[in-house]
Design a protein around this nucleic acid. Sequence first.
DNA 1: GAGTGGTCTAGACCACTTC
DNA 2: AAGTGGTCTAGACCACTCC
Lengths: 243, 243
Amino acid sequence: MSALSGDDRLPRYQRLADALREEVVQGRWRPGDQLPSENVIAEEYGVALGTSRQAFQQLVSEGLLERHRGRGTFVRRANFDQSLFRFFRFRGRSGERIVPESRILSREIKPAPDAVAQALARPANSEAIAMKRLRLLDGVPVLAEEIWLPADRFARFMELETETVGPLLYPIYDSECGVVIARAEEALTAESVSSETAALLGLEPGAPVIVIDRLARGYDDQPLEWRRSKGPADRFEYHVEIR
Amino acid sequence: MSALSGDDRLPRYQRLADALREEVVQGRWRPGDQLPSENVIAEEYGVALGTSRQAFQQLVSEGLLERHRGRGTFVRRANFDQSLFRFFRFRGRSGERIVPESRILSREIKPAPDAVAQALARPANSEAIAMKRLRLLDGVPVLAEEIWLPADRFARFMELETETVGPLLYPIYDSECGVVIARAEEALTAESVSSETAALLGLEPGAPVIVIDRLARGYDDQPLEWRRSKGPADRFEYHVEIR
DNA sequence: GAGTGGTCTAGACCACTTC
DNA sequence: AAGTGGTCTAGACCACTCC
């Protein structure tokens, strides 16, 4: 039986949730893995069943776990594909969501610019993988992306053929580099399109584009990828609930 | 003691939550009002304390109620001021949030355009109050707004002096017209500024602006106000968490 | 001190999944 | 049939607010 660590003044379910979260951070359970049942956890940590339930419940509301009656409790897989669709109208004729295809235009190692190095919590000018990518729907460019990765964690990524890399990078980060993306923060802006991006996206000079900056992090909150995506404003559509 | 209505197959806490939500919709408790304690509710509906707690908890997570230890459970007041700040950088020199002042440019009754009538769930061409409003920070225009209200529900609003109407409309809707706004949906877009809006906001022709369409609803989901706000894209800044 | 919500316990029965 | 999470109960003690 494990003891609950941490501040005694915190409620038990809180300290138990902290302990379980830490296990995920440490990689004892990876995305998709099943956790021990609430019974087992309760016994292991010497708390009542209701208390372990409350801890699980908290981690579900944080988005770290998901529970299924009759099946068990699992580490949730983050789903980032939907992010695109939260912002842009990318749908097929019948309304279904289509992940835009992806064409890597360039990939090289160079010193990270200050803003990127800072976002990635790296020293100024530290080496980074810089990538430019174009995303297309039915062959029509819809998104221009610039992606930065810390070179040390992603060395293996440079060895892959760019042609074989599909549209979804995060599964590749995981399988090839052992890097798991757990969450991200995105910041939206809009601006008049630059001539370079206008050429890539086939837009009129000065047309409005939406700019999405994303910083992706691991379970331990360490920043792992920075990217900036630009898309035409007239395909942009974002909905928010206010309460 | 009240009986729990609704489908027997639903869990009790769910049916209790539905019953309490309905009371709020019916106006038995208004925003800011205190509800009976979990003890009283449990007894009144003939359920265990834990069950009434679970019902309360659900309504808290829906944003309908808020609970304070030692004080009680209250109908939450929606706070829409923050909406502005979720989208735009409107801060004073010391970083605090400032609600922009407000200048009503025009107010008249006319038939609602199709899109507005449809959003407000009114017949085509039904009468509506149309308002144009400019919002300023330190005397500098930062937001151009167009607001539509169904004329029947807001008749009293036309009698107010526009000069005396402050920047926050929803408290006035409540106090003057008995209309309570409970929530809203907002949709974001961006576009090149029109010449009319450019003049209002003091922007270059063709500069990018963010457009926010809001549909505000009552507790019963009835649409009550439609507005469209436009602000310069370079003051726009919106953050999203992806998990 | 009385009343509120927050935590915690120990037990029961149920619905669902998997074998 | 065994194991999982979901619901429900009845009770206890605690921390906090208000009078």
